[in-house]
Amino acid sequence: MIDRRDFMIASLGALSASSLDALADEPLLISSNAVNDPSVPTLRARYAFSVSVFFKERIMIESPRRRAYVPAMGGEIWGPRLTGRVVPYGGADYGSGGLVAQYLFQASDGALIYITNYASILNVDDDGKQVSWSGDAPPTARRKPDEPPQQAFVSRPPDRKHQRFRTMPIFDAPVGKHAWLNRTVFVGHGVRHVDPDHSIFTYYEVL
């Protein structure tokens, strides 16, 4: 097992060691902007949990709708509202155009929670400003008549420094302690990393 600090330095590049500790902070509460109109309510969301999902392979089928297959190898879940793991091969991103990933989480108490993660990727420039939306897979070149399809692709580093997702997850948790996930609107964001290929999702519950 690699030391966490070494892993962070290797995968995030130029960040200094001191700023790595700052990364551990998570803003706990988000509020909508103040509006000078009493009839407009404030929207609030609270940090719920984060999930890391590791990927080993990425497949893209050049069907008319371009179907992706990116299976989840595993991962961890941590945060104030949920802890556990991502069940290895419990699901995948079977996206077609947009990303619709379905994964299986397992809470620390053993409960199996199904998640459908609707996501869109956006590219951000170095200042974190939104630049464009894009699909995940590189475009494949036209094939020669006898050439077999090259469907597996290595996840290339993001075009910009970061690729960021917005996600709208839907949960299916069993009756019991985690059933509140089924009745709460969530919003999340994710960051893609390469080497190893993984994404980290951060989920906020809308209050």
Binding site: I2, L12, E26, P27, I30, G74, V124, H162, I200, T202
Partner: peptide, 25 residues
């Protein structure tokens, strides 16, 4: 699961989500 490490979320670099009021129906 031993090989998975717990990276922190890169929120400081990209910023947490913000909610901007747009309109009412």
């Amino acid at each position: 699961m031993q090989e998975f490490i717990l990276p922190a979320v890169d929120t400081k670099t990209l910023g947490a989500p913000k909610f901007e009021y747009a309109f009412q129906i």
